[in-house]
C-alpha cells in the first residue's frame, strides 16, 4: 500500500476524540472490573456483618483513606504513563506517601506494647488469607485496566504495568475492606500493603507482555 493512500484512508471519516479520552477509558475499564469484583466479594466472602456500626469508627475510615489515596495517585500516574511522552511527574513520589504515613501510624500503635499484643496487632485474625483475597478480588479490575491500557501508547511497559497493578490492587483492596474486619494499623500496613505490592509485581511482569503495541 502506498503511504499516500494510507494517509487518505486514515483521514477519511475521522472520528473526533473527546477531551480527557484517556482518563475516561481508564475509568471505564476500572469501573467494569470493580463491578465484577464487588459481585465476587459479596457472593464469595460476604460484606462484614457489622458494617453499619463499623462505619462510625476511625479505623474503618483509615483503611479506606489508605487504599483510596494510593488508588487516586495511581490513577494520576497511569493517566500520564499511558502517553508515549508521559513522565510520572509529581505522582511518582506521591504514590509512596500513603505508605509512609501508614508505617508511622503502625509504629505509633506498636511502640510500648508487650510482645503478645504486638503480634496480635500485626497478625489479626486473617493474616493468612488477607493478601490472597486481595489478589483474587483484584483480578477483574486488573483485566479491565489492562484492557483500557492496550488502546494507549505507554513506552515504559514494565513501569506502567507495575503502577497499573498497584492501582488495580488498591481498588481491589478497597472492595475487600468491606469484608475485612481487621482494624489495627499495623495489620493494614503489613498485609494490605503486601497484597497491593504483589499486584504491582504481577503488573510489572505482565506489562511487557500485554502492553506492547
Amino acid at each position: 500500500m502506498k503511504t499516500d493512500d494510507l494517509i487518505s484512508a486514515l483521514a477519511t471519516e475521522l472520528d473526533p476524540v473527546p477531551p480527557r479520552a484517556v482518563a475516561n477509558r481508564l475509568a471505564l475499564g476500572l469501573g467494569l472490573g470493580a463491578v465484577i469484583s464487588v459481585a465476587v466479594m459479596v457472593l464469595w466472602l460476604g460484606v462484614r456483618p457489622d458494617l453499619m456500626p463499623a462505619m462510625h469508627t476511625g479505623p474503618f475510615w483509615m483503611k479506606f483513606a489508605y487504599v483510596l489515596s494510593i488508588a487516586a495517585f495511581g490513577f494520576g500516574l497511569v493517566d500520564r504513563l499511558a502517553r508515549p511522552d508521559g513522565e510520572g511527574g509529581v505522582f511518582g513520589p506521591l504514590i509512596l506517601a500513603p505508605l509512609g504515613i501508614m508505617i508511622v501510624l503502625a509504629a505509633w500503635q506498636l511502640i510500648g506494647q508487650p510482645h503478645d499484643v504486638r503480634m496480635q496487632l500485626m497478625l489479626g485474625q486473617s493474616y493468612q488469607v488477607c493478601a490472597r483475597n486481595i489478589m483474587v478480588l483484584t483480578i477483574p479490575i486488573f483485566a479491565g485496566l489492562f484492557w483500557s491500557l492496550r488502546a494507549f501508547a505507554p513506552t515504559r511497559l514494565t513501569f506502567t504495568g507495575a503502577v497499573a497493578g498497584v492501582l488495580a490492587g488498591a481498588a481491589g483492596t478497597f472492595i475487600y475492606a468491606f469484608h475485612c474486619t481487621e482494624s489495627a494499623a499495623p495489620f493494614v500496613a503489613i498485609w494490605y500493603t503486601l497484597g497491593i505490592a504483589a499486584c504491582g509485581l504481577v503488573g510489572a511482569l505482565f506489562g511487557r507482555l500485554l502492553l506492547r503495541w
Partner: peptide, 27 residues
C-alpha cells in the same frame, strides 16, 4: 502512522506535539 492514528487519544493538547510524535517514532 497507523499507531499514531489508533492512539491519537493519548495526545495531550497542552503538551508539545513534536515530543509526542517523536516518542511514538522512537518506540
Amino acid at each position: 502512522l497507523i499507531a499514531m492514528h489508533a492512539r491519537r487519544s493519548t495526545y495531550d493538547p497542552s503538551r508539545p506535539f513534536t515530543a509526542w510524535m517523536h516518542a511514538i517514532a522512537r518506540y
